[in-house]
């Protein structure tokens, strides 16, 4: 079952995509949702607040989603947080690189509400197992 009390950080340099993802999360029943517009800002938020899930774009200025993922996975306090990459990067080598860096799941844009919902279910199910 999805943890609707989970505090979620949505990271994307485009406000449009942050709003779309937040809108879907709210419709699914999630209430605690914060935003960051690049990896560096996300890291700052992660140091200040305890999150149960990170939903992150890959291709961002300042600090990419892949760099954020690597930073999270190498930080003792943050490394256990599930990390969902939501990105337009559909190339096989990108997906492989994200898996090697420890991504929990991966969605290629464009996506539907059903796809995001299913990925969240899968992530929370694997956490509960």
């Amino acid at each position: 079952m999805p943890d609707l009390n989970a505090r979620i950080l949505v990271v994307d340099d485009f406000s449009t995509m942050r709003r779309i993802v937040k809108g879907i999360l709210k419709r699914l029943g999630y209430r605690e949702i914060d935003e960051a517009e690049d990896g560096q800002m996300a890291l700052k938020r992660l140091k200040e607040t305890r999150y149960q899930l990170i939903i992150c774009d890959w291709n961002m200025p300042v600090m990419t989603g892949l760099d954020l993922l690597k930073a999270v996975r190498s930080d003792e306090e943050l490394k256990g947080i599930p990390f969902l990459m939501v990105t337009a990067e559909a190339k096989k080598e990108n997906i492989l690189e994200a898996i090697q860096a420890g991504v929990s799941n991966y969605i290629v844009k464009p996506f539907t509400e059903e796809v995001l919902s299913k990925k969240l279910e899968d992530i929370f199910k694997s956490r509960a197992a």
Binding site: F14, S15, T16, M17, W58, N59, T87, A88, E89, A90, K91, K92, V108, K109, P110
Partner: peptide, 28 residues
Amino acid sequence: MDAVGEITNMISGGARAELENKGYSFEM
């Protein structure tokens, strides 16, 4: 303006993935 940026990004990403299968690789 912001949404057009994201749309451009998504179309580019999808097209680059298909072009990769034809032997052409592009950077982000």
